[in-house]
């Protein structure tokens, strides 16, 4: 049996904020009619959460669901729970025009804790002020040169997803942005 590892295998760095690659994470791309009853049932079955509103992330007992586009969701589960979540969703979406694909190993996930807004705001053309970007908000944008999707947790930390092939680049970006002496303190 292979020893499964994530892109950067829990790489960490710390400056005025800490950056961590959070390891193996179950991620499923779901496409279809987000307003349908079947989609609501599928998402509920996989995560316990409701279908999120535009640009939101919903958290449930066994995972989270993020709004990616008008016809796409990202379902986040435990790495081990992916197969059963996919089975449950496919059963709910039977006969619907839809797609459910395991993308866990095609992505990397990072967490930024501490003065996370300061780290993020240097990298993405997004308003991260506390009024504008609240917990539950989900935003796809770019981090410097590459695509990423990000959200804010209730504790003020940020999590973000990027393509696995850009993991090292994103880790380096976040680490440099969080380096001591680089605090901006405009947002926090």
């Amino acid at each position: 049996m292979s020893n499964l590892v994530s892109a950067l295998n829990h790489a960490k760095s710390a400056g005025f904020a800490s950056v961590e690659e959070t390891g193996l994470q179950g991620m499923i791309t779901v496409r279809g009619d987000l307003a349908s009853k079947a989609m609501a049932a599928a998402v509920k079955a996989a995560t316990g959460a409701a279908v999120p509103a535009t640009r939101k992330i919903e958290k449930g007992d066994t995972g989270a669901v993020a709004w990616m586009s008008p016809d796409e969701l990202l379902v986040i589960t435990s790495y081990e729970g992916v197969d059963s979540a996919i089975e449950a969703m496919k059963a709910s979406l039977q006969g619907e025009h839809s797609m459910v694909v395991n993308v866990s190993d095609a992505r990397a996930v990072f967490k930024v804790s501490g003065s996370a807004e300061d780290v993020m705001a240097k990298l993405a053309p997004v308003d991260f002020s506390t009024e504008a970007f609240q917990p539950g908000e989900f935003r796809r944008s770019r981090l410097a040169q590459v695509a990423a999707a990000m959200w804010k947790n209730d504790d003020g930390s940020f999590e973000l997803v990027c393509f696995r092939s850009t993991a090292q680049y994103v880790f380096d970006l976040l680490s440099v942005s969080a380096a001591n002496g680089g605090e901006v303190r405009h947002l926090s």
Partner: peptide, 12 residues
């Protein structure tokens, strides 16, 4: 018009 994001040019 699809996701409602008001973004600057480099996001498009």
């Amino acid at each position: 018009p699809y996701c409602g994001v008001k973004g600057e040019e480099t996001e498009f």
